[in-house]
Design a protein around this nucleic acid. Structure first.
Length: 503
RNA sequence: GGUUCCGUGGCCGAGUGGCUAGGCUGAGCUCUGCAAAAGCUCCUACAGCGGUUCGAAUCCGCUCGGAACCUCCA
């Protein structure tokens, strides 16, 4: 029995709003597309949460034995500033402000994005396509939609005919976001230069470029650039097929972006593009969504250094990762210094247990205790059960904390390893290490633990041992206190050995 | 205005009809030369008001409060 059969995965499908059993199109394989960043600025912490969510999702699929193709795009054309744009997109605007070539901007912020992903231990996707690399495909699908009568050209721009699509598809526009097309008409706002559209609910597939616009490509309708939604439709279906398993993204993309993707793809290919939609919720600050425009966002670098008015101190990447994993991806998560401090301590506890269990060995004498063994086996199994239940990282962490207590029992001698049968011990160890490192992506933060530093501290530890043996407690305390003052905490173990941690 | 979601103990945060969430903080105990770490114990909540039910934090209704989307946004 394979792991995915033993612990069948269920998760909430945004399309139905219900928790569903995951049934892949091709058994053993998962195709997943996630909307990536728009690279016209530094990614802030809120953006990071979404990528962390889907990193964990893809990690767990792989852990269960699935072969995953994870596609996450780079939006380097830039979303329109607004629907009434003057033929200028965000990247072009930024480029002019900074006197740079658009591709220079894109390059800079893509590099930043990648480095942020790396420090958070977010694994790279299988394919990372860019919008500018798929202009031809975007033109082709736009052409196809025109031929099908679902799009129309006006003055060098092409728009998707939402009303017509809706009539042809059982009024399904709004199927994802629960929106009603008639209500959209009432609430939609009127914009001056929107007069080109036949209906204000229509959205752009291709926009004509004005002379000032510096990102432009030739097309059957003249020089221009693609609309926002079409890139994701093109790149997802190109690499995953016309219907694929999972599409993810931030909740704020549900409407209109994802709704438009469904309409375009369904219109062009005659079939629904995605079986399961997953939306991750927002990171909030004082209850409000973190966003650049609200001025309550901060950059990962500011978080690490603590160099920000909202931050009391700096926090390590793994502390932040742990902090985010403590809540469910579908809930909002509120940022606060208190919560980060709590996370820092909690994470250190798990990390310390990780170091211990990795070195633990099931040696020793004594008969295995069946009841004890089955209790530990059951505990470890809960990691699988919790992750298979809508990727519940919070519940999984709760189990890992209990496992960490047992690991500490082993270290302190409260729990004799030989009382655990070999099979259970191996499963327990494999589960703890596997869920920490492979599934949750939490690694030991030992960057301070350089060889030189370690060697130096070992010398001091030996001196202190000698002082203790000589009952020279004044000296042994001075060594410990002085080390603590510079951030090195010594810990005396029962067996006389001495460990240390670096703050 | 429309659509949707949320309101859990000192703080963060899981949980959807009966069974201990967990972390952090605080108090105590054990271990220890003293610490630190660790283990154990305690502090037992579900916005308010009604209703359904043998039984509700969990379902229904109303009230109050907060948020997201409807415009670029992870």
């Amino acid at each position: 029995m394979t792991l995915d059969q033993k612990y069948p995965l269920h998760f909430t499908n945004s399309l139905s709003g219900k928790k569903e059993k995951f049934e892949p199109i091709h058994p053993g394989f998962v195709g997943m597309y996630v909307c990536g960043p728009t690279v016209y600025n530094f990614v802030h912490l809120g953006n990071t949460r979404t990528f962390l969510t889907f990193d964990t999702v893809s990690r767990y699929f792989r852990f269960l034995g699935y072969k995953v193709r994870y596609v996450r795009n780079i939006t380097d054309v830039g979303h329109l500033v607004n629907d009434a744009d003057e033929g200028e997109d965000k990247i072009a605007k930024k480029a002019r402000m900074e006197q740079l070539e658009p591709m220079e901007v894109v390059k800079q912020y893509t590099e930043d994005f990648h480095s942020v992903m790396r420090v958070f231990n977010i694994l790279p996707p299988s394919i990372e396509p860019s919008a500018t690399g798929h202009i031809i495909e975007q033109i082709n699908i736009t052409n196809k939609l025109i031929e099908l009568g679902l799009a129309y050209e006006v003055n060098g721009s092409v728009y998707f005919d939402v009303k017509k699509y809706n009539q042809q598809n059982n009024n399904s526009y709004g199927i994802l976001s629960g929106r009603n097309i008639d209500e959209l008409m009432e609430s939609g706002r009127e914009l001056d230069s929107q007069s080109e559209k036949r209906d204000k609910r229509d959205f752009a597939l291709w926009k004509k470029a004005l002379p000032a616009h510096i990102m432009r490509w030739p097309s059957p309708w003249g020089d221009g650039f693609p609309g926002w939604h079409i890139e994701c439709t093109v790149m997802s279906t190109k690499y995953l097929g016309e219907t694929f398993d999972i599409h993810g993204g931030g909740l704020d993309l549900k409407f209109p972006h994802h709704e438009c993707e469904i309409a375009q793809a369904t219109g062009a290919n005659g079939k629904s593009p995605v079986n399961y939609w997953i939306h991750s919720n927002m990171l909030t600050v004082n209850g409000q969504k973190m966003s650049k425009s609200l001025g309550n966002s901060f950059l990962p670098s500011e978080l690490f250094t603590g160099n920000h008015p909202l931050l009391e101190k700096g926090y390590t990447p793994m502390t932040v990762r742990f902090f985010m994993l403590q809540s469910h991806y579908s809930s909002t998560l509120d940022f606060s210094n208190e919560a980060l401090n709590a996370a820092e301590k909690g994470y250190k506890k798990l990390s310390a247990a990780l170091t211990i269990i990795k070195q633990a060995d099931p040696t020793g004498t004594g008969a295995p205790d069946a009841e004890l063994s089955s209790g530990l086996h059951h505990l470890a199994e809960q990691c699988y059960q919790n992750m298979s239940d809508d990727f519940n990282t919070a519940k999984t962490l709760a189990v890992l904390f209990e496992m960490a207590s047992r690991i500490n029992d082993i270290k302190s001698g409260n729990l004799v390893v030989s009382r655990i049968d070999k099979e259970t011990f191996d499963f327990f160890k494999k589960t703890y290490v596997g869920f920490m490192e492979d599934v949750l992506g939490l690694r030991e933060e030992t960057s301070h633990n350089h060889e030189l530093l370690d060697g130096t501290i070992q010398v001091l530890i030996e001196l202190r041992k000698k002082a203790k043996t000589d009952k020279n407690f004044a000296l042994s305390d001075k060594i410990r206190d002085d080390l603590k003052a510079i951030g090195v905490q010594l810990k005396d173990n029962k067996d006389g050995s001495i460990d240390y941690t670096v703050e």
